[in-house]
Amino acid sequence: MKTLDVVVFGYAEFAKEIVDQVNEAYRSVKVYALDEETVSEAVKEGFEAELFDLDDNWEAFEHYNMQETLFICALEDDAENVYLTIGLRDGLQDARLIALASTQEHASKLHLAGANKVISKLQATADIIIEVLEKPIVTHIMQEILQEETALKTVQITLEEGSPLIGESLHSVSIKEERELIILAVVDATMQTSFVFTSKGYRHRLEVGDILVVIGYDEAIESFRGRVQ
């Protein structure tokens, strides 16, 4: 389920930043805007853009491979964004949808509308403000990881059939790899959404399909990936 294409709806201030950030990282990034003016603005700034309307005309998006495409609903108007999300969910049932919410109330509406992930602008801003002041070092590290300013990265590695780690306990794997990287958490394959932090679930036996969240330097991560997959 590796993302290759990104579709961004809207081209307001938040959407612009998203397009800016993801532009380099994916095979294709396309902006869909509600009016001609915005479309031409996006095109002028060097992005691929097209006009769309909120009527149920989702066939236009069916050519995207749903497994490889991420749809980001970032329209400026809250109501329109909810309407877009619900329309997308209805028209493209397997689509992966991220939606931007301005308030908590709006966030819960987007969840109900079927977004896989809702990022609350307000919540994220408030969280970062408090984090910067209360935990400056943690914030700095997180920021560096997010902005990829250092070689330090967080990655997720899915355990596949035949991996030498299958059957081992999380604790023993962590001890073995301790010198190189840190295994932060694991997502249990049988209970898709439950997280087990290494510190807590050290007895957890690794199975096929488990997703390890690893933090470490590029080189160490790549060599670990090579060994376990």
């Binding site: 938040f14 990282a25 980001i72 994220a124 002041l133």
Partner: peptide
């Protein structure tokens, strides 16, 4: 001393989520 620019933050979060949803959730 500290500048918080929410638009950039949301951009980064979206990028992080699109690439590594599980790692993003963990963080």
């Amino acid at each position: 001393n500290h500048i918080v620019y929410s638009q950039e933050l949301i951009g980064l979060l979206s990028k992080e989520y699109s690439g590594r949803p599980v790692a993003f959730e963990t963080m």
